[in-house]
Design a protein around this nucleic acid. Structure first.
Lengths: 143, 143
DNA sequence: ATGGGTGCAAAGCATTTGCAGTACA
DNA sequence: TGTACTGCAAATGCTTTGCACCCAT
């Protein structure tokens, strides 16, 4: 049993929720592709290909649950559906999205964090989290 | 005929598109509520209340058109549907969104702009535009 | 008049929900 | 064993599309 699965068990048990095979599988799938920002259909496809018959409804329910429990975060990458990734410690981080090839690069820059805090302060706004998407073209696509 | 309507005519004519009553009305509605970030249903509601029988389909089509023409921009404010506002000169600006009352405050901070450009440069990414949402609680709601 | 614009209804996606059956504590 | 969990299918919400009619040019 690895550390991530233990975090999952702990999070679920502490909320009197059950630790099921399906929940383990869904959580593991997101972690295994932590740099790909999977969407619901991708998670479903990967599980089905492994012979796990999991319904879309359960995936939606489980992902919501894991987001509420603080294990995952849902990201908006400029498409009509959401993407999921393991939750970072910081209260937010940004995504560089290539408009051409669609690849996503993450970043968490301290300068931005500070600039955001200042903007919030100027408006007397208590910052909880932020969501930042930068669209552009990556080096590979510019050639 | 005011300056905004002239901009609309110019934008449409230059693309060999027709200047219709319906398009004028939709554009005017967004401008009239430029600080409210209207969504499609709100635009529809306001027009209907004024006795203009405009279909949702046409509103969707027209808003897309105006975004493509550079007159409006579509913003994602963390809901499952989009919001529209007059397009600003700058290639992007952010929104402070109160998680409690839902009010939206805009800002365009030079410090953030610079920090973003630096992040892009570090990854050799050519920045086209950005979208930034800061969630938190406004002063009024914290009391 | 003629081709683009519009309303209406149906279709398309992403997501949620009701319900009956299944499996974890 | 009892109840939360799950699959299935139907429902929902937002948005797009097909088609016949309408109106700017």
């Amino acid at each position: 049993m690895n550390a991530d699965q233990e975090r999952l068990e702990q999070a679920l048990r502490s909320r009197d929720l059950r630790v099921t095979r399906t929940r383990r599988a869904i959580f593991a799938e997101i972690l295994a592709s932590s740099d790909s920002h999977l969407d619901v259909r991708q998670v479903h496809g990967r599980l089905m290909r492994k012979g796990r018959n999991v319904s879309l409804a359960t995936i939606y329910r489980t992902l919501h649950l894991l987001v509420r429990s603080g294990l995952l975060s849902r990201e908006d990458l400029g498409e009509s559906h959401g993407h999921y990734e393991p939750k970072k410690r910081a209260a937010g981080h940004g995504h560089l999205i290539c408009s051409s090839c669609g690849r996503v690069f993450e970043f968490a820059d301290e300068g931005i964090r500070k600039a955001l805090a200042e903007v919030g302060a100027a408006e007397d706004f208590r910052l909880e989290k932020y969501s930042l998407q930068i669209f552009g073209s990556c080096r590979r696509c510019r050639k």
